[in-house]
Design a protein around this nucleic acid. Structure first.
Lengths: 342, 342
DNA sequence: AATATTTATGCAAACGTTTGCATAAATAAT
DNA sequence: ATTATTTATGCAAACGTTTGCATAAATATT
């Protein structure tokens, strides 16, 4: 049989005071005498009183709860984002209720309803792949619940967003290959229906153009899921082409790594014959041989920025803050797979 | 200005009924007529009423909330466990409030208090590295809050635990090397102060003994953190030894991978000259060349099992369930790094 | 001593549900 | 027509805090 939890009323009974006095004493209210405060705190400690934030929150209409919806927790990118969110939230006295949408719009809608039901004060969400309409989120915004979208964000309605500079990152990555002497640069692209990958493709093209290198559509291969297998397939296509590219910018690390491995198996030297750059700085990228040059997309910082923006919006009581978009710069982590010269 | 949230009282006013009738109608109580139920549900839908589970939970003394404490969310093992927990919890109508202890006993104690404060109905926790005393958890158990420990579990007090069969897994991994013809088998061990790694070491020894292979302490190298660097260092020590081992069982994938790479750099053929087996089946293990044979420690299933056990304990009202330990079997995923013969 | 002001504590309503018991209306039985 | 039973809805307390306002006691001023 468990011990029942101690309440303010229990302390009140013990000390022959009223629950409102106990509540104020514990909160350090100036109208309560120091001696009463001392007495109450001592007895609270003695009996193991822990405030019931459900009851307090119910009265004050505050939950200090943030809902987080990610496609999958075990995808490294998202686990870094969540880690960044939790660290910031913990420091600010908020806690995180987490859900996976599993890239299902139906599950995402159900979760949105659950979060309303649970009175979260704000939401951070990476949209599911299937999400094309956002009424389930618009409804919550209308109720005054701020929402921050990260990574996959809605394009056609105003919202708070935290994204990375995909265009600029791709530009820099491609530019790096050019600076390493590459002239015939290929691109393994992500699904162009997803704006992230579209921007990466645009950045790649812009860098070529900026350096007077003609864009050759035959050097761009589009994948659906940027999977390891698709990367290998693209690498084989490059090898089979009349003129093998001497540099490749890949939209994620998996395709970059598989490309590297296919080239090596085919006897192509990386980076001497073909330099390769990936995207996302997964832990894998510093383990494979040669170590992979890759864009560090700062997922942890993305999480921190999203949580900071959300808490600012929660605590802005007059709702004066307009929608905001934070675009994080990235770093290019230069490793062996693209280094020809210093 | 946001729209205020619709309550039972609002519906009551609209329909000229009492809030208790509205509550019962929405809940489908048999004492309420079908026509009233229909009318109430229609109006609820029309006005966008969503039940307030904070208020309902306050009255019923239920939160349907589970607290989860992991050392770090972005460690792949833990992100898989959390994914397993969330999937099971979502299906059972519970939600997950997540915290990182950052391997700090102080932060863990603070989090335990926060979870009491928030009236979670149960807790799943992987103890921080620093945790040597458990009063902060014992106190919660005494209040009737069930706690499931996973992976790093307390040894000297009765608790619910979900672990893997470290001994049996290590035995099987070592046995596999023996079956592949290895006779001089080394071990890169984890910190022996952690029972997980101690059991792995014991399993390794037991397999040698079971096959009449003498245990040679010179073939066992202990690390502190099983880091990539420590793995490389151990590999160098093996290379410098008078007789290089022809098989190595490593306590995690990072050390296995770095060992493989050091051997390859030194001209040793893996697995022909030295076969290598890792532990944890990180995504890395199927990417490196040769692909790594490794123990799949089924972190996702560990999460599911922990959540299932916890919810069973939460919903067992007479508290008749004794403490329980679930030991998950693992699979040995045989890949190139250990295959000499079929 | 009487009056005014300040200090410290208490009362009770409130938050939004749920639910035991009460009561009015409808229906059935005599 | 009267009485008994059933049906459907309502009242109000409860959950554990917080807080506006009330009040008693202590202190200061005249």
């Amino acid at each position: 049989m468990s011990n029942p939890r101690i309440t303010l009323k229990d302390l009140a009974r013990e000390l022959q005071l009223s629950p409102s006095t106990i509540s104020r004493a514990i909160a350090g209210h100036p109208a309560i005498s120091e001696s009463t405060k001392k007495k109450v705190r001592k007895k609270a400690e003695e009996l193991g009183f822990v405030p019931n934030s459900i009851a307090a929150g119910f009265r004050k209409k505050r939950t200090h709860s943030i809902g987080v919806i990610v496609p999958q927790i075990d995808i490294h990118f998202h686990s870094l984002v969540i880690s960044g969110i939790e660290d910031l939230a913990y420091r600010e006295g908020y806690n995180i209720t987490i859900f996976q949408s599993k890239d299902s719009i139906e599950r995402e809608k159900e979760i949105a309803k659950i979060l309303q039901n649970r009175s979260v004060e704000g939401i951070i969400v990476c949209l599911s792949n299937e999400t094309k309409s956002y009424t389930h989120f618009k409804k919550l915004v209308k109720l005054g619940i701020p929402i921050i979208f990260y990574d996959r964000v809605p394009l056609d309605f105003q919202a708070n967003k935290v994204v990375i500079d995909d265009f600029g990152s791709a530009f820099k990555a491609t530019e790096h290959l050019i600076e390493q002497g590459c002239q015939r640069i290929g691109h393994i692209a992500g699904n162009q229906g997803t704006s992230i990958f579209k921007h990466r493709f645009e950045g790649y093209k812009a860098a070529l153009q900026a350096h007077d290198i003609p864009y050759d559509p035959n050097l761009v291969l589009e994948t659906q899921n940027l999977s390891y297998e698709e990367g290998a397939s693209c690498a084989h296509k490059f090898i089979a082409s009349p003129q093998i590219p001497d540099g490749i910018f890949c939209s994620n690390d998996y395709t970059a790594i598989s490309a590297v491995q296919v080239f090596q198996k085919a006897g192509l030297k990386v980076p001497e014959q073909t330099a390769v750059v990936g995207f996302s700085n997964y832990p894998i990228s510093q383990v494979i041989q040669p170590n992979l040059t890759t864009v560090n997309d700062r997922a942890y910082q993305m999480g921190e920025a999203a949580a900071k923006l959300l808490i600012r919006q929660i605590e802005d009581e007059d709702n004066a803050i307009d929608f905001e978009t934070i675009t994080l710069k990235t770093d290019l982590v230069i490793r062996e797979s693209s280094l020809r010269k210093k």
